[in-house]
Amino acid sequence: MPIVEFKNVSKHFKVLNRREGLVGGLKDLFSRDYKTVKAVDGVSFSVEAGEIVGYLGPNGAGKSTTIKMMTGVLLPTSGDISVSGRVPYKDRTKTAANIGVVFGQRSQLWWSLPLIESFKILRDIYDISQEDYAKQLALYESLVDLEPLYSKPVREMSLGQRTLCDILAAFLHNPAVVFLDEPTIGLDVAMKAKIRELIHTLNRVNNTTIILTTHDIGDVDALCRRIVIIDKGVMIYDDSAENLSKFFGQYRTLKIKTDDEITYESVTITRNEEWVEIVTKEDEMPVMEILQALQKSHKISDIRIEEITTEEIIKKIYAGDGR
């Protein structure tokens, strides 16, 4: 049985069309003009226990709306949601007892309390038995050097330490599902690697399901076998990370070194210092064909051909020319 299941879920918001100026503001008081925004529109997917799923999409695509519906904060307009066997919005607190949430930018720990006190409060809130609590702390201590952080108030921690502690706090009650919202945002390269490794380990140890939103493709490459992409409320991709390039076509980048101004029909061309980069879909417009055509009219001193990266594919999807 899937641990998280979305069946044709939609969330529509009514948004007030605000009128301009003081007179408009007064008019709004009496007659309101609403428009409907489809934040999430007919999304279906299911996640099996133990998976790490990358939930991607440009800003405003409906990611946070989805997460809010999964956690029961938000009521879907239509469709069915189940998280570890429960309907989240029908029983928010019971669902919440079995999930963990981390927001990269904002700590959910008690700002002025030492870490260990936050942990103790969480132990009480989630009703964790003494034995399980001790076991989990022992696990944490074996993974990271936690001892010096215990007595430190969260507000005195660095962003990296805080993120680390927030992740540990989210896993403390051994939830079935953990939502990570941009867990590595603003961190340096070394800390990012550390956090990713930690997430990976925590996923394996208790077979915890992880749903991860991020704008950092490094997170996806390091952690996610499976990717779900949502754009303008509609799901546009749900498959393995490897299949992404197949699904969206065999994109390749042709780099040529030339002093000339290059134009070519129906391909994107960008100039990056002395290199001119041409991104093309192999099955529609083969690289060799372009190269041959360009060679006839331009003086080319060097060429390179590169396979497209996940990041570039996703960039193309976000830009809207993926499909």
């Binding site: 956690t71 904060v73 928010r92 607190t93 904002r106």
Partner: peptide, 14 residues
């Protein structure tokens, strides 16, 4: 204003 309020919605508490 900062959006920090959302954190209060994710705990199994009122």
């Amino acid at each position: 204003v900062t959006g920090d309020f959302i954190k209060y919605c994710f705990k199994p508490l009122n």
